[in-house]
C-alpha cells in the first residue's frame, strides 16, 4: 500500500515538473552554458573561454557593480517605504472603513497599467519643460526645486524609484490584506477583552501571525525590484550618463551588442547574489518565527 501512495503522489507534481523541465529548465541550461563561451549569437562557432567572463566581471567591470548598487538602492527604498505604505493601508482597510471597495480598486490600478503607459505618463509628469511636477512646485512656491528630474544625475535614480514604488505597492497591499483577512476576528476580540489597545493588538496578535506573509512580501520585493527593467528602459535608458543603469539593463546592453557569453555570465553572478539575499531572508524569518 505504501508503494501506491508514492505513485499517485507523484501525479500531483508530475504535470508541473514535466512542463517546467521542458519549457524552462532546458532553455535555461542551454543558455546557462553560454557563460563559459564567447559567442555573438549568430555564428556557428562558439569560443570556449572557461571562467574568463566571470573573472572579468567580478574584478574589472565597475559599471556592473555600480548597476547592482543602483538596483540595491531602489530595493532598499522599496523594502522600507513601499512595503510600509502597503502595510499601513492594508491595516487601515482591514480594520473596516467606508468606501472600502473604492480604495481597494484604486490601489490596484498602478500594477495593472502596462509598463508603456506608466513610463510615458510619469515621463510627462517629471518633464523638465512641460512637467506637472514642476508646475505644482511653482504653485506652492518651491520653484527652486524644479529641475529636469530624470536628467539630473542627483535626482534620476530617486525619481525612477518613486515610480517603481508607486507601481508596486498595490501587490504588497493585496498580499498583506489577504494575509490580514485570514486572522480570525476572535483573537482581536479576546485580546481587547484582556485590555489591549490597537497598538498592542497589532504587536502581539497581528505581527506574529503575519510573519510568513511579511517574508513572502519582502522576498518578492527583493526579487522583483532587483530585476527592475521596464521602467528604466522607458524612462531613462540607464541615463543620465549611467546614473540609473541597473543589472538587467546592463545585461540587455551586452546582449544587444552580441556579447552573449559575457551577458549570461553577468546574469549568473546576479542570480547568485539574489540567491544569497534570499537565503539571508529565510534565516531572518526563521529566527523571527521562533520568537
Amino acid at each position: 500500500m505504501k508503494k501506491d501512495y508514492h505513485i499517485s503522489n507523484a501525479l500531483f507534481v508530475l504535470p508541473a515538473v514535466l512542463m517546467f523541465a521542458i519549457f524552462t529548465i532546458y532553455p535555461f541550461v542551454k543558455t546557462f552554458q553560454l557563460s563559459v563561451y564567447e559567442w555573438d549569437g549568430i555564428s556557428p562557432n562558439m569560443k570556449f573561454v572557461g571562467f574568463k567572463n566571470y573573472i572579468d566581471i567580478i574584478l574589472a567591470d565597475k559599471i556592473f557593480w555600480k548597476s547592482m548598487t543602483n538596483a540595491g538602492v531602489i530595493t532598499l527604498l522599496a523594502l522600507t517605504f513601499q512595503n510600509l505604505l502597503a502595510l499601513i493601508l492594508a491595516v487601515i482597510i482591514d480594520r473596516g472603513i467606508k468606501f472600502e471597495k473604492f480604495f481597494r480598486t484604486v490601489y490596484f490600478i498602478p500594477p495593472i497599467l502596462s509598463g508603456v503607459v506608466v513610463g510615458l505618463v510619469w515621463k510627462w509628469i517629471y518633464d523638465g519643460n512641460y512637467g506637472i511636477l514642476n508646475t505644482i512646485l511653482s504653485y506652492i512656491g518651491l520653484e527652486k526645486c524644479a529641475t529636469s528630474w530624470l536628467s539630473n544625475p542627483k535626482t534620476a535614480l530617486l525619481s525612477v524609484a518613486i515610480v517603481h514604488m508607486w507601481k508596486g505597492f498595490g501587490w504588497g497591499f493585496i498580499i498583506l490584506l489577504s494575509g490580514l483577512q485570514t486572522i480570525p476576528r476572535e483573537l482581536y476580540e479576546a485580546s481587547s477583552i484582556d485590555g489591549a489597545d490597537s497598538f498592542k493588538q497589532f504587536y502581539y496578535v497581528t505581527v506574529p501571525l503575519m510573519i510568513p506573509i511579511f517574508f513572502i512580501v519582502s522576498i518578492l520585493t527583493i526579487l522583483g525590484t532587483m530585476q527592475i527593467f521596464d521602467l528604466i528602459y522607458s524612462m531613462t535608458r540607464g541615463g543620465p550618463a549611467g546614473a540609473t543603469e541597473v543589472p538587467i539593463s546592463y545585461i540587455y546592453r551586452y546582449m544587444s551588442n552580441n556579447e552573449l557569453g559575457y551577458a549570461t555570465a553577468m546574469a549568473v553572478i546576479f542570480g547568485i547574489v539574489l540567491f544569497l539575499l534570499s537565503i539571508l531572508q529565510i534565516k531572518i524569518s526563521r529566527k523571527l518565527k521562533k520568537v
Binding site: 515621463k123 518633464d127 523638465g128 519643460n129 512641460y130 529636469s148 530624470l150 536628467s151 534620476a156 524612462m235 531613462t236 535608458r237 541615463g239 543620465p240 550618463a241
Partner: peptide
C-alpha cells in the same frame, strides 16, 4: 535644452514642434 540627455528623439521632436 532642459533635460536633453535623457530625451529620446520623440521627446525632442515634441519640444521643437511646440516651439520650445
Amino acid at each position: 535644452a532642459e533635460g536633453i540627455i535623457t530625451m529620446i528623439n520623440k521627446d525632442a521632436e515634441r519640444v521643437f514642434a511646440t516651439e520650445k
